[in-house]
């Protein structure tokens, strides 16, 4: 069996530590039987390892415990009801708020887009109706205008039926909350 010296040393070293597979153990057994140099190497490696194991431990010269001045400003302990708060909780809250924000913005945008399409269609239809009314009854013009106004130009449909200003305030508020949660999570992890 031919081995490079380095491969043989690695195999014997792993064999010493019981870190060889059954196949490698068989190779070592064959090697030790055939090769007196390998037997000598195993003996000297064992000897080296024993010497290292007998090397006295160095006594610790002093305690390495920390005090507050060593670690800088002490992190305020989260007392009471905040003590349970872990980075994982913050990550979960951040993800939930971010999802809510995306749903709100997407819903708001979608509703506005649909409303603008509906308004355009109404605008195309209204002149014809208006013309008919105009032809039949001049007083109907006012009625048609009123109906058009009520159907969506002055009061467009909004997401979840919420007023546009409320939606905008919610979106901005949620965005700020997500940013604050991200900053708190980053600080908690870094601290």
């Amino acid at each position: 069996m031919n081995f490079r010296t380095e491969d043989r040393d690695q195999l014997l070293s792993a064999y010493l530590d019981g870190q060889t597979s059954p196949r490698e153990q068989a190779r070592v057994a064959a090697l030790l039987e055939d090769d007196p140099v390998a037997r000598s190497d195993l003996q000297t490696l064992t000897y080296t390892r024993q010497l290292l194991a007998e090397t006295p431990r160095v006594p610790v010269p002093r305690a390495f415990t920390l005090n507050e001045s060593m670690v800088g400003v002490r992190r305020p302990e989260r007392a009471g009801w905040l003590a349970w708060l872990q980075p994982a909780h913050l990550r979960l809250a951040t993800a939930m708020m971010a999802i809510l924000l995306v749903v709100l913005v997407a819903g708001d945008f979608g509703t506005r887009w649909q409303a603008s399409g509906h308004t355009s269609a109404s605008a195309l239809v209204a002149p014809a109706g208006g013309l008919a009314l105009d032809q039949g009854d001049p007083t109907g013009i006012t009625a048609a205008k009123t109906a058009t106004t009520e159907s969506g130009i002055a009061s467009p449909a909004t997401f979840l039926g919420l007023p546009q200003t409320t939606l905008l305030a919610l979106e901005v508020g949620l965005a700020i909350l997500v940013l604050l949660l991200l900053a708190a999570g980053w600080r908690m992890t870094r601290a």
Binding site: Q10, L12, S13, A14, D17, Q19, T44, L45, Y47, T48
Partner: peptide
């Protein structure tokens, strides 16, 4: 880990064998 450990042991073994006379007799091979 295996490869570094094997090389380290082999080098230390060679180092110690070259200096056997410096080892206390109890620890000589």
């Amino acid at each position: 880990v295996k490869s570094r450990l094997s090389r380290a042991r082999a080098k230390l073994r060679d180092y110690l064998l070259e200096r056997q006379e410096l080892l206390p007799s109890r620890y000589r091979l």
